[in-house]
Design a protein around this nucleic acid. Structure first.
Length: 639
DNA sequence: CTAGCGTCA
DNA sequence: TCTCTGACGCTAG
């Protein structure tokens, strides 16, 4: 650990001594980079490089110096590096590609999170406590001298971090994955995604219109105006004025906190049959949520036709990235229907809304999305070595459609098979029939309609993941809208068909009880203190989290690795222009130059499907991980 | 079932 | 008036 260059930034309130909560009074007015350079004989010299916004000298010597410093091979350390990077790249316009590939350093904020991802730290002093770095007595003379002293502590913190991470075999993951991700996330944040404001506004108006109609309808059937968002008022109307529960002798569950009669979704769905109001409320809540978050709410975040999200590296215990302010990972994917049962009107006035369609590429660019096909299910097959799934997953077929088809053909054996064979998709079905013969215990669900709709696939997918991660019959019944006996049968048929679900569960839980922690394919760890709890509920939860972590965390490793490797490969083709805009867990969305679309498609697919390279040469998956590439002129087109 | 974030009372 | 919390609903698997 020789020659560390330490880089906090912002004079006075650098990350090392910034207060717990960013309050207005603590906001710094001057900014720059504070750094210390240690020589061989351990003498450290400290400097402060002032960076004034709008200063023309920012483009000259200061820029060159920072570029030299940050891309130098010396070991550099910085607490909160992503924040520093966004600041610097924004200020100096450093070239994104080069930053991503060469600006590497060590950040104890991320390091501490790798040690215990359930307890991320938020301040430098927490890092000191967590790592047991000697509590330093900071003498308050002036900002500069205080910062110098903190830089000394930073060295100690990284020293401790190194020993902790190495002894837990996390160093490689830290340096080769998480630290390489930092500059990429900074670049993604700064690029932003462009938005068709007019389109978003139009959708907002359409939603508003529909919401107003629903509100009027609700007031009418309630007999008086009231605030539709108020559960208190709604409760009074439903149970004291309309007395829906008494009149129809329906028992209403009580809320846990206030032990008042619930107005929750399942309750309203139950009441829909006896009165129009609950149905209207449900529809209202749905549209109101969409408007306040995804149209009206999203417009608050637009800056000169762009939306800039924040990518959080240390927010999820499984190793996933998260997005916030706004959360672009939760923009609705499926079309929203404005057709209503209560508000009649010509359908032309109620078009379906695609809330992802206002997000568009810059002029001259096209969106390119790359999706890992059912990554967690495939990883389960690999990790559990399930013989049936290992066989099925040799082919890049859509297993959720296959399963949906299987259930369908089992309930109504004829028709569809023929047409699918004619369209050349019969092969999949034959494969699945060989593996899960018609008439097996997967049948009799009777919940799919005449033809296979996209919703059927979505439903099947949710069943698979629910059961895989240990859902009880009650929960499954609730979301499938079937009774408990049917849900039980579904779960049971899965367990019979894939006995490795249980054996893998037992294996993972046993390992977790032995070690107190588990590891993903990429070596990421998570601690499970409750795995030995005497409280059965807590223990069961820890067991489900354990299973989920191994799979979801491994998927996160692969996706992060894919982001980095695509970036590296693009680096060897300087003419190719592709900018990563979004990561939605298993999906990467790029903005690529129109004329280079085909070339980049091929490049991305090749890199992402090379799982051996993604995992490092020593590891290999038992199954391929097919990647689906789509492209288009708005985000809805590639979803 | 797991993992998140944003809205609202 | 402000901040925090729980329930809900959107996403991803």
């Amino acid at each position: 650990m020789s020659n560390p260059i330490k880089l906090p930034f912002r004079e006075g309130f650098c990350q090392l001594n910034k207060p717990e909560k960013s309050s207005k009074s603590a906001r710094c007015t001057q900014s720059g980079i504070m750094f210390g350079i240690s020589s061989i004989n351990s003498v450290t010299k400290y400097y402060f490089l002032r960076i004034n916004p709008g200063d023309s000298t920012n483009t000259g010597a200061k820029r060159n110096f920072l570029q030299y410093l940050l891309s130098s091979p010396f070991r550099k350390i910085c607490y909160g590096a992503q924040e520093m990077y966004t600041y610097l790249i924004d200020m100096f316009n450093f070239p994104a590609r080069q930053v991503c590939l060469t600006w590497l350093l060590l950040d104890p904020l991320v390091g501490c999170w790798l040690l215990d991802p359930d307890q991320p730290i938020h301040t430098f002093s927490e890092a000191i406590d967590r790592l047991g770095a000697k509590p330093a007595v900071i003498k308050k003379k002036d900002n500069f001298s205080q910062s110098c002293q903190l830089l000394g502590v930073l060295s100690l913190v990284v020293e401790k971090l190194y020993h902790n991470l190495s002894s837990q075999k996390l160093w490689k993951l830290f340096v080769d994955m998480e630290m390489r991700l930092v500059p990429l996330l900074a670049v993604m944040e700064l690029r932003g995604i462009s938005v068709d404001k007019a389109k978003l506004e139009k959708m907002n108006v359409l939603l508003k219109g529909q919401i107003d109609l629903l509100e009027a309808a609700a007031h009418k059937v309630a007999g008086k105006p009231f605030h539709l968002n108020s559960t208190v008022q709604l409760r009074t109307i439903l149970y004291e004025e309309l007395k829906l529960d008494q009149k129809h002798s329906i028992h209403i569950k009580e809320t846990i906190s206030l032990k008042a009669k619930s107005t929750s979704e399942p309750v309203l769905r139950q009441l829909k049959a006896v009165h129009p109001l609950p149905g209207i409320i449900l529809e209202y809540r749905h549209l109101h949520k969409l408007r306040s978050t995804y149209t009206e709410g999203m417009m608050q975040h637009i800056q000169r036709n762009y939306i800039f999200t924040t990518w959080e590296q240390t927010a999820a215990a499984t190793g996933r990235l998260t997005s916030s302010n706004p959360n672009l990972q939760a923009v609705p994917k499926h079309e929203v229907s404005l057709k209503s049962h209560v508000t009649a009107g010509p359908t032309t006035l109620h078009p379906d809304l695609l809330l992802r369609s206002p997000y568009v590429p810059r002029p001259g660019y096209t969106f390119l999305a790359a999706d890992f096909q059912h990554i967690e299910f495939r990883l389960f097959a690999h990790l559990a070595q399930d013989p049936t799934l290992l066989q099925v997953f040799q082919q890049p077929e859509d297993i959720f459609i296959t399963l949906a088809q299987l259930w369908y053909t089992n309930t109504r054996k004829l028709v569809q098979v023929q047409t699918r064979q004619e369209t050349g998709q019969g092969l999949n079905l034959q494969v699945c029939n060989r593996v899960w013969p018609v008439g097996s215990q997967l049948d009799g669900l009777g919940m799919l309609g005449e033809t296979l709709e996209p919703e059927d696939r979505e439903k099947t997918k949710r069943i698979v993941y629910s059961v895989m991660y240990g859902a009880g019959a009650g929960k499954l019944a609730e979301f499938l809208q079937v009774d408990n006996a049917v849900a039980s049968r579904i779960i049971n048929s899965f367990m019979v068909k894939f006995p490795t679900i249980r054996s893998f569960f037992n294996l993972v839980v046993a390992k977790c009880r032995r070690d107190g922690k588990l590891h993903t394919i990429g070596g990421r760890q998570r601690l499970f203190p409750n795995i030995k709890s005497s409280n059965g509920g807590l223990r069961a939860q820890a067991e489900r989290q354990a299973i989920n972590f191994v799979i979801q965390g491994s998927a996160a490793d692969l996706c992060k690795s894919a982001m980095l490797r695509v970036e590296q490969r693009l680096g060897s083709y300087p003419d190719l222009e592709a900018h990563l805009l979004l990561q939605i867990h298993d999906e990467l969305v790029y903005e690529v130059q129109d004329s280079q679309l085909q070339q980049i498609k091929a490049l991305v697919k090749e890199v992402m499907e090379d799982t051996t390279a993604l995992l490092g040469e020593s590891q290999e998956l038992s199954i391929p991980l097919p990647v689906i590439i789509t492209s288009g002129k708005n985000w809805a087109d590639v979803s």
